[in-house]
Amino acid sequence: MAQSSVGLICLGEATNFGDDLIMIAGVAAIAAQHDDVEVRYLSFGSPVNWAEISARLGLRLDPRPVRYQRELPGSRRSELAFGGCDALLVGGGGLFQTSHHPHTPYLWLSHLPRHLPTVPVLGVGLGLGPLSDDWSRRLRRLGSPFDECHLRDADSVTLAEERLGWRVHRCRDFVDRVFLRQLGIDAPGGAAGPGQLGVALRRWPGLEVGPTARHIARIAESCGTDTIRVFVLEAGPHCPDLTFSEQVGRELGRDAEVVPYRGVDLVAFAEAMARCTVAVSMKLHSSALWAALGVPIFPISYAPKTAAFFGEPFHGLTVYDRVLPPAVEPETVPRAADVVGPWVERALAGAVRPARAVLPRGERVRLQTSSTAINVCRQLGRGLKSAVTPGAR
């Protein structure tokens, strides 16, 4: 009898700490209940140390990476990438948004098989938005691409139900206290002394280097910390967060150390974050990690998801000069990881009847063509900038 196979479509191994944690939690959620199932996952080429992670979790994790490759118009490369899988998971994280690219949702939808018999698909731990009007209309017209969908926050549920017309459920994020403790990341264990201020930033319109550095320095002084470590959770090529964090670090002076994330060092990076005794946090999953460990957080909120994490209304970019506790989720909202196992069991048993919407062939080709044109223009722009900027990366 052929081995069953489950695919995980995620932003994995893309030098993004939060998304790598989500990927690991998703793979672990499948393996914890189905250790005889082959797991394939979408990889962007910056591998994590699966042997170390397996040992930490006490699970036999040997997932198979499916390397992401951009499509040309008319190609079926993405659609065929997970061929032979008996079920697919999409999530978690903020995959369905148009902040960074006008066709980001298509990147994920392109990996879902179009032809019958369709493979059952679970959307889990996802955050939706912001979405352009164009994509909101397209997704409403298309219908839900998932046979079952669990979103990680109330705003995403509202967007899905009211703007897109989807039927959805709530769940918690993949990255929580339970998962971090399973990974061996526990309460702060730094050496005795004044303590360490952890910082996690992203470049954002309206957030300037000088004022940000002065804000961090004031918090370090008021909390009596003797060192500052600036953790760059998204440090891949062309990611502006690294440049911005380095500029802030230089402004702070010799007591500040900038620590870029590398996938192979995921556990060490998380343990270094866990040694912080207070934090200035702008990234969602830095907030999730520090909150899970009971570290006091001075948030910088730039999006509805970061405001919602602390139970605050979103009023644009907000730099808080006080500690905020994370919002408390109702006990009735399940963990994303706890949604996965039972659904996979039902899907592999044939108890999930696929009824999801699929992108028509013509729509796929139009989106492929538009995405390719945008990507080519961006690459040309980067090349031109490097040619005229001395010392450009």
Rank of each mutant, 00 (worst) to 15 (best):
L11C: 05
G12N: 08
G12C: 08
E13C: 04
G18K: 09
L21F: 00
A32E: 14
D36Q: 14
V39R: 02
L42M: 14
S43P: 03
F44A: 07
V48Q: 04
A51S: 12
R64M: 15
G74W: 09
L80T: 15
A81Y: 11
A81R: 11
A87P: 13
L88R: 09
G93Y: 00
H101L: 11
H111I: 13
P117E: 15
T118M: 15
V121R: 01
V121Y: 00
V124W: 00
L126Q: 02
L128P: 00
D133Y: 12
D134G: 13
D134M: 12
W135C: 10
L139R: 07
C149W: 03
A160W: 03
W166M: 07
R167F: 04
D173K: 14
D176R: 14
R177E: 13
R177L: 11
A187N: 13
A187L: 13
G193C: 03
Q196P: 08
L197K: 10
G198Y: 14
A200M: 08
L201S: 13
R202N: 04
I216F: 03
R218L: 06
S222I: 13
S222T: 14
C223P: 08
D226I: 00
I228P: 01
E234S: 14
A235V: 00
G236R: 01
G236T: 00
P237M: 09
T243S: 12
G249P: 02
V258K: 00
V264F: 14
L266K: 05
A272T: 06
A279I: 10
L284E: 06
L289C: 09
W290S: 05
A291I: 04
L293Y: 01
G294E: 02
V295R: 09
I297K: 13
G316K: 06
L317G: 09
L317H: 10
R322F: 15
V328S: 01
P330T: 05
P342E: 00
R346G: 13
L348N: 11
G350I: 12
R364H: 12
V365S: 12
L367M: 08
T369C: 03
V376G: 06
K385I: 10
S386H: 13
V388F: 04
P390I: 09
A392Y: 10
